[in-house]
Design a protein around this nucleic acid. Structure first.
Length: 922
RNA sequence: GCGGAAGUGGCGUAAUUGGUAGCCGCACCAGACUUAGGAUCUGGCGCCGCGAGGCGUGGGGGUUCGAGUCCCUUCUUCCGCACCA
């Protein structure tokens, strides 16, 4: 009987579907385990061989956990709202819902063929109304909440309203907009409804405000900071500019500290945590107010080095700073205006590329250093960012490189402030030594100086200690069609939530997927789309990350239509134990999800502070492109090794007609009409192709589809080969070359169950010691490997085990049956088939129990000690493991073989490590 | 510039705690079989050398009886951040 993988795989995939083998329910008698994959965006190109890498790993892990007795939740769905479907809709007029539906079906077929243990009864799509109903509902909870720094959590907005009614803003410590004013209870109560709403909007966790946004004209939408890379859009690479607009935002900044602290309590890769720390960008420092010589206004600066305040020789404002216009003296007006105009014309990218060039302009105004009383000039320069801190800095050229260059360029003084500071050629940011030229802190060290200064500025009211975060609130709106409608309508220009009973707010049909002629978002085209037939809805839709910021909860209770997830479900499933996905979501999805999770927890809907306990990033699978070399101007192709002898041009060739870098000439000729009459210059009768590692993409003809691999070798081979390729976290190019090794292994494994005539033949004989050793080695190895996510090493261990059992001609049930169970996570189809041969009618192997490892089967009584002299292995000596080091040493020194190497000398020292090694020093 | 990860045969990789470097595959070489194949089986395969032997985990140095593994230093590649006061 042959290994017929096509029949076997189809048979079991059908069986699993019909018997709901992977359906799970809450089971209080079993410990839960939640394994989650980052759900895919269903693109039109379908899955390539790189996409399932993480899914295979998580599938192995969840199958293993199930064999170990856990109740495993392992779901899959689709992040189905997004730009590509809409861009396609603009080009073709095809409704994004239709293409998304087609793509989703194709993804599902491809996933099914790989044999995943997903509970498909929990499948979800973020674009389904019964899913986005709850995304909208969560949006409403955020709108109806504010952040109370006193209790350090989000609370219902009513609590805040009650505070305003009783005490006004007095004593309220809330996360709010920067321009928020104070008022008394009487003032609040005297406000009109509209005025109150306007005020509350400054506190809500999702709010509408006038802010500077990343506007992408080509995409016709704003983008979040994490969607802009170096001044260009992440999707499509279009230029992005800064623009002031009224926008929905999420007050994630309120959670900056908790998001930062939480990173210490989760088992995530260090690089991801570090990226989130950078993104949050906490810096501890102080705010300090400088009086102005001729104005009542003060310039407030943020500094992390208050101790350097006596080294301040000028102030610098961002060109956008609100005081610039007012401060500028008439004689400097022209210069300042010219500089501001120049800055405006520079794109974000130019500004970044131009780090080295020093530029700036003097306003003509002077400020007074609140500690030294010194008069310092006020400049503007584009190296100061309007959006960070206060948009103004105190410049300390002796301690800061940018200030140093600026001072040198414009001939401003540079004052040494620490005795150990060396500032002849460059700034020195040291904190070592004692202060000099520094008034009241002269002679102090850093710690003492900081304490003294903070105390002084707070006592005098000129400043205060302050912690600053780089992270800005997240823009939460896109001027696009294919996203969740925002459940908000406008009355008197103010936003109000629609009634909860009106959810879901269905995405309306429109005639064209383009902005209106007046530049309104596409939803403005929806004719007659008004709340209660009267009020305008919000015309933006939610960003791509809305639906993915809570989806792991929906899987827990996917069909619930009275709540986004039931309490019963969160009580049991709680959080995600293992999350596998790409590192490209480090500062987007993974940060937003943590944020929403904390809000939902604060409001009492879920119980865990962090949603994803353990995170693993699978590496990217790159493409391995192949090239042919055409002699320029001809239809003649030269083999790789000979290409230097001709004037050639490399051309991508489809990797699917190349095997081990040898081109299939017939298939090549048939590939496109131009090549039908191609001629070749061969080496050793073959055409050898060149190769290069590139991104896997259609245009490079290096895309390998899992469908093709499965067709040729089967899903079990694909699964094992993807793991065999190397450590999960590592990025690596896909190369189909090695796959036959894995395929041969599975056939060899299959053959263990057959006799010489090819008939199934398994005996009930007692296993030998060697057979038991082979089995228990693999039982132990797989358990260890899976636990530390080292899937590649298990595959080679299976190969070793099968090689050993083949050599032993083992066909004993007592060995093969447990072996089938251990391999089921990796190669579930063949495992099912063999299991059913061993145990006809006894159901699925996934319901078996992982075999128990018995260490006694691995115990040896003798060991081949490597005998080394001065650390170099010279020979080996077989010695009983029962002997203690002193006895081993005696035997070694007596051995005639060893004496040969000692050359009559007595070793100065002999080291015996029991069961490991013997080393002699001579 | 700052932060992170990684450098081992022709290739992908392995090496639990400092203890025989190169497991397992691919490719390659030799042989067997043969219904000539992108099939199967057997054996070989780090480098230099006929050999004894020597060298060998990016380079240099150190600790140790012993280093791919620990420490210092340096180079290279990839990833992330980048005027953040």
């Amino acid at each position: 009987m042959e290994y017929k993988f096509r029949e076997i795989e189809q048979k079991w995939q059908k069986y699993w579907a019909e018997n709901h083998t992977y359906k799970v329910d809450i089971n209080l008698n079993k410990p839960k385990y939640y394994v989650l994959d980052m759900f895919p965006y269903p693109s039109g190109a379908g899955l390539h061989v790189g996409h399932p890498l993480g899914y295979i790993a998580s599938d192995i892990f969840s199958r293993f956990k199930r064999l170990k007795g856990f109740n495993v939740l392992h779901p899959m769905g689709y992040d189905a709202f997004g730009l590509p479907a809409e861009q396609y809709a603009i080009q073709t007029g095809q409704h994004p819902a239709i293409t998304t539906d087609q793509n989703t079906k194709r993804y599902r077929e491809q996933l099914d063929r790989i044999g995943f243990a997903y509970d498909w009864s929990r499948e979800l799509r973020t674009c389904d109304a019964d899913y986005y109903k709850w995304t909208q509902w969560i949006f409403m909870q955020l709108f109806d909440a504010w952040y109370n720094f006193e209790t350090d959590k989000a609370e219902p907005i009513n609590v805040l309203v009650a505070k305003f009614e009783n005490n006004g803003t007095n004593g309220v410590k809330a996360a709010c907009d920067e321009d928020t004013r104070s008022f008394t209870a009487a003032e609040w109560n005297a406000m009109s409804e509209d005025e109150q709403q306007k005020e509350l909007l400054k506190y809500r966790l999702t709010y509408l405000s006038e802010s500077v946004v990343n506007w992408c004209p080509a995409l016709g939408t704003v983008l979040a900071n994490d969607e802009v890379i170096g001044g260009f859009s992440e999707r499509g690479g279009h230029p992005v500019e800064q623009k002031k607009m009224s926008q929905w935002s999420m007050r994630i900044s309120a959670y900056a500290e908790r998001l930062l602290q939480g990173l210490d309590n989760i088992d995530w890769p260090e690089p991801i945590r570090e990226m989130q720390r950078n993104w949050i960008g906490k810096s501890v420092g102080a705010l300090l107010k400088f009086n102005l010589e001729k104005f009542e206004d003060k310039i407030e600066v943020f500094t992390t080095r208050l101790d350097t305040v006596f080294g301040v020789t000028f102030l610098v404002l961002a060109p956008e700073h609100e005081l610039v216009d007012k401060l500028t003296t008439p004689e400097h007006k022209a210069e300042i205006e010219a500089y501001i105009n120049k800055t405006k014309q520079k794109s974000e990218r130019d500004r970044m590329a131009d780090v080295k060039t020093v530029s700036g302009a003097f306003t003509g105004a002077f400020a007074i250093n609140p500690l030294s009383g010194e008069k310092v000039p006020v400049w503007i320069a584009d190296y100061v960012l309007a959006g960070y801190g206060t948009g103004a800095v105190m410049a300390v050229p002796s301690g800061d490189e940018r200030d140093y260059r600026f001072a040198q360029h414009f001939n401003l003084p540079i004052v040494q402030i620490l005795d150990s500071q060396v500032i002849d050629e460059t700034a020195d940011a040291t904190k070592e030594g004692k202060y000099v030229n520094s008034g009241l802190i002269d002679g102090m060290d850093y710690a003492e100086a900081m304490k003294t200064l903070v105390h002084k500025i707070e006592a005098e009211g000129t400043g205060k200690a302050k912690t600053n975060y780089r992270m800005r609130d997240a823009i939460f709106a896109r001027q696009r069609y294919w996203g969740e409608p925002v459940p908000v309508y406008f009355k008197n220009g103010l936003p109000y939530l629609i009634d909860e009973s009106d959810l879901p707010l269905i995405l309306p049909e429109i005639d064209k997927y383009l902005p209106t002629e007046t530049g309104e978002p596409p939803l403005a085209r929806a004719a007659g789309w008004k709340y209660k037939g009267e009020f305008e809805y919000e015309h933006s839709t939610m960003p791509g990350w809305a639906g993915s910021s809570w989806y792991w909860y929906r899987y827990m209770d996917a069909k619930n239509d009275s709540s986004f997830v039931s309490k019963e479900a969160t009580d049991y499933w709680k959080d995600v134990d293992l999350y596998i996905g790409g590192s490209e979501h480090a500062t987007g999805h993974l940060l937003y999800s943590r944020f929403w999770n904390k809000v939902l927890k604060d409001l009492g809907y879920v119980q865990e502070e962090e949603p994803f306990k353990k995170l693993i990033n699978q590496g990217m699978i790159q493409g391995r492109s192949n090239f042919v070399y055409r002699i320029i101007g001809t239809n003649k192709f030269v083999s790789y090794g000979l290409r230097k002898d001709y004037d050639t041009q490399p051309l991508h060739v489809d990797v699917n007609i190349v095997h081990n870098d040898v081109l299939d000439l017939e298939k090549f000729k048939k590939s496109i009409p131009d090549y039908a009459n191609a001629e070749f210059v061969l080496e050793d009768g073959k055409y050898i192709c060149g190769h290069e590692v590139e991104k896997m993409s259609k245009s490079k003809y290096n895309v390998v589809s899992p469908d093709d691999i499965i067709e040729q070798y089967g899903a079990d081979t694909l699964r094992m080969y993807e793991m065999f390729l190397g450590p999960l976290e590592q990025s690596k190019p896909w190369n189909t070359n090695g796959i036959s090794g894995v395929y041969n292994f599975l056939r060899k494994f299959w053959n263990l169950f057959l006799d010489e005539k090819g008939e199934v033949s398994v005996t009930n004989e007692e296993p030998s010691k060697a057979e038991l050793k082979a089995l228990h080695k693999i039982i132990q190895k797989v358990e260890e490997d899976v636990t530390r996510f080292s899937f590649n090493t298990s595959v080679s261990s299976y190969m070793i085990c099968v090689n050993e059992l083949t050599a032993l001609k083992c066909n004993k049930r007592a060995i093969l049956e447990p072996l089938v169970i251990t391999i089921c996570p990796y190669a579930p189809h063949i495992a099912e088939e063999l299991w059913s041969i061993l145990n006809p009618g006894k159901g699925s192997v996934i319901d078996a129990v992982y075999p128990e490892f018995k260490p006694e089967h691995l115990v040896e009584d003798a060991f081949d000690y490597p005998i080394s002299i001065n650390g170099k292995v010279k020979t080996k000596l077989n010695v009983s493991l029962a002997l203690e080091p002193a006895d081993v040493e005696k035997l070694v020194l007596e051995s005639s073989d060893v004496k040969k190497y000692l050359d009559g000398k007595t070793p100065k020292k002999v080291i015996v490590v029991k069961g490991r090694i013997v080393n002699m020093v001579i």
